[in-house]
Design a protein around this nucleic acid. Structure first.
Length: 579
RNA sequence: GCGGCUGUAGUCUAGUGGUUAGGACGGAAGCUUCCCAAGCUUCUAACUCGGGUUCGAAUCCCGGCAGCCGCACCA
């Protein structure tokens, strides 16, 4: 059979795929009986299994191979969390509405001719600049109303009083950061520390589009790897440095194909651990069924990179919508933990032990008790303690500002001195850096379907060439005819094979070709059929045919071998061609 | 959110003021020794929602909701 070559899917094919997904129970638009809500979808029975299978492959890599640990944290978070993460302030669009015609506008866009970087302006500054530059409604020329914040986070209240403001999380990552002390202890205070989490995130998108690509409620698979900031290597790196990646660096438009090792050597990818997980992302996506020829890694442009990120790469796949980001792999530096340490007052450092205790020469602030006593009397002790707690780097023009007994005091160097002291130290405290591979599960799910979709226009025949590992149904079980005991035998085989890991599907209705077609359309890799030879005397008694989806070839195998053969094929121990 | 186009069974679609709203595919039950969606019989199920115009609306008008395309937005 000839199928559409593996190229970008055309829009009408994409519509056929969405229609297939709906018809066969992969995904359904949510709340259809009430008119639907844009950007929301439900997973049907097959979609649910496919999605779970994708998550299992991801777990196998991160939890299995890399030994990371998994947690499951809350989706509603108090405001403080997103204040610290920057989402309360940075995740908002500033809007203004025309007083005359009511049209809404992005406030910063209205003044972009007057400022280099208008998105840093506060609402008050924007109000003021409307007045100063005489900005009016672009639609009708009317006067603009006050600038208001439209936050992309869903807001709620925690508890019956409305005091405690909460938000639905816009990403799962914060749940890991706020659990860092627990996780660090759990990991017996060692670095590196890898943590994974899957779950839902919520963004109140202004205009969701493109089917499952931009959803208001979406699924993520996030990985946060905490590493020592001075050790951005990874044990598995030598094993993969010869593997190739397709890269689009932010220094130019050209696409480069090069080995992981060379990309690090030439400074294209910032460090080895980041490069390792970019490659891991490729392994994951290809294993899930993403076409390597339609996969690339694009580096964030300097101005689109979050200000804290040291380096950030998006895994992009070519879909009918164009190149689409499905995973982001970022070196977030120490930003997340520093912010939460600062906002919560909790120590979020790693104690890095030296190989052996060292004599370390450091500068310290030492209080001059002789001067402090007479000057501060009863407060002298508290002032001295406050002085010795601050770092010498805070000395400005020979003065230090300290807070003692709740009172701010400026001290000249007649009250303190900076001395060099030699101390024995077993180690030092460092803020771990975070390497974050963050996967959009729904986008990956959709990409897997698009890249598996094969449609023969001439025969009007559709096959989903899903990788067996992710296929929702592994085996179709058919009686050639539902009579003469063929159906009983087929049901028996179905019962022996079907379990929560190997999902089988019994089908006895319609012609045999129709049943194969039904299975091909949902990506079932193999089907067994009980025919008359299975039950009549002859050399094939006690055997069934097994059919391969992609070649439509058949082999005869013994009935008692059906389960082991299917398991062997699934695990890759067996090859259909050699059956 | 703005502008343009669109909305008929699960899917694709016919119907442009009065139709038992038609077909195809799918699905279900049955018949058939039937291995690649193509045989036979029977059955199943729809006018996106709300208002208006009209004696009468799937059809005309207004609005909501949803989809597609473009703009904007977004990772």
């Amino acid at each position: 059979m000839s199928y559409a070559p593996s190229q970008v899917m055309q829009m009408n094919d994409a519509n056929d795929l969405l229609s297939l997904c709906k018809r066969r129970g992969f995904i359904w638009p949510s709340f259809e009986m009430y008119g639907g809500v844009a950007g929301m979808f439900d997973y049907g029975p097959l979609g649910c299994v496919l999605k779970n299978n994708i998550v299992e492959v991801w777990r196998a890599i991160y939890k299995g191979r890399e030994g990371f640990v998994e947690i499951d944290s809350e989706t509603v978070n108090p405001r403080e969390v997103f204040k610290a993460s920057g989402h309360v302030d940075g995740f908002a669009d500033l809007m203004t509405y025309c007083r005359a015609c009511g049209s809404p506008f992005r406030a910063d866009h209205l003044v972009k001719d007057h400022y280099e970087n208008p998105d840093v302006l506060t609402p008050a500054e924007l109000d003021e600049s409307f007045a100063r530059f005489g900005v009016t409604c672009p639609e009708c020329g009317g006067q603009l109303g006050p600038v208001e914040e439209f936050n992309l986070m869903f807001k709620t209240n925690i508890g019956p009083g409305s005091d405690r403001v909460g938000y639905l999380r816009p990403e799962t990552a914060q749940g890991i950061f706020v659990n860092f002390p627990n996780l660090y202890r759990y990991n017996r205070e060692k670095m590196p520390l890898g943590v994974i989490q899957t779950g839902r995130g919520y963004r109140n998108e202004i205009a969701p589009r493109q089917g499952m690509i931009r959803m208001r409620e979406f699924n993520m698979m996030e990985v946060e790897l905490f590493v020592d900031p001075d050790d951005k290597d990874w044990p598995g790196f030598p094993g993969i440095e010869g593997e190739e990646l397709v890269l689009v660096p932010n220094t130019g438009e050209e696409t480069l194909t090069m080995t992981v090792g060379r990309a690090v050597e030439e400074g294209i990818i910032a460090n080895r651990v980041l490069a390792y997980f970019i490659h891991t992302t490729k392994q994951l996506l290809v294993r899930l069924g993403v076409d390597p020829a339609r996969l690339r890694f694009r580096q964030h442009l300097p101005d689109e990179m979050a200000h804290y990120a040291a380096d950030c790469w998006d895994a992009e796949v070519l879909l009918s919508y164009g190149w689409t980001e499905i995973t982001g792999i970022a070196d977030r530096g120490c930003w997340d933990l520093s912010r939460h340490a600062q906002f919560s007052g909790t120590d979020l450092t790693h104690f890095r032990r030296f190989d052996e205790p060292r004599e370390v020469e450091t500068e310290r602030v030492r209080a001059r008790h002789k001067a402090l006593g007479p000057a501060f009397k009863g407060r002298a002790k508290a002032v001295a303690a406050a002085l010795e707690a601050v770092s010498p780097s805070e000395v400005r023009d020979g003065r230090l500002t300290v807070i003692a007994d709740g009172e701010e005091t400026v001290l000249t160097d007649e009250y303190f001195e900076v001395v060099k002291v030699t101390e024995k130290a077993a180690g030092e405290r460092v803020v771990p850096h975070v390497i974050e591979p963050s996967h959009g599960l729904d986008r990956i799910f959709y990409s897997v379907l698009e890249h598996a979709y094969a449609h023969d226009a001439e025969k009007d025949y559709t096959v989903l060439r899903l990788r067996p590992e992710v296929a929702p149904v592994k085996l179709g079980v058919f009686p050639l005819m539902e009579r003469d005991g063929l159906d009983d035998l087929a049901r028996r085989i179905y019962g022996e094979v079907h379990d929560h890991r190997v999902e089988a599907y019994y089908d006895g209705s319609g012609t045999i070709g129709r049943r194969y077609a039904r299975m091909d359309e949902i990506g079932t890799p193999w089907c067994v059929t009980v025919d008359y030879a299975s039950v009549e005397d002859g050399p094939d008694r006690g055997t069934v045919t097994i059919r391969d989806r992609d070649t439509t070839e058949q082999r005869r195998i013994r009935i008692e071998d059906v389960r082991p053969v299917v398991e062997g094929l699934l695990e890759g121990r067996l090859d259909f061609a050699s059956l």
